[in-house]
Amino acid sequence: MRTVIFRTTAPYLTSLMVLFSVFVLLRGHNEPGGGFIGGLIAASAFAIYGIACGVAPVRRALYFHPMGLAGFGLFLSAMSGFVSLAKGVPFLTGIWTSVNLFGVSLDLSTILFFDIGVYFVVVGSITSIALALEERERD
């Protein structure tokens, strides 16, 4: 699989796919997309990079261990449910707020953070499975 063409294009492909996965994650609130599918796209991006350039560069590029990313995602999702504690509403109730950033009003919600958590869980778990499989193949 490690042809010159593939190895040259893989980094560009990977960065494009990661960018697209973030786009899919953010548009997922009201349109097709969301954390799960975005996470799958990002995980396949890392898998492609791993197939082309080996597992070690992927682990270096990710910096954190994929399982750590999954743990962070689960933590973020669970914490987004606890925000409703302050508002006196049941667990996981969606709470909206608006932030004014450089003259643009940006709507933030706990649902968004829950979805980002899902994204990280999927990226982390699928990437660690994919990397483990690719590593085994090389041995």
Binding site: H65, M67, G68, G71, L74, F75, F91
Partner: peptide, 15 residues
């Protein structure tokens, strides 16, 4: 919810 939070936290500090 508490064990889930704890499990997630432990995954983050697994080393």
């Amino acid at each position: 919810a508490l064990p889930i939070l704890g499990g997630a936290l432990l995954l983050m500090v697994r080393h």
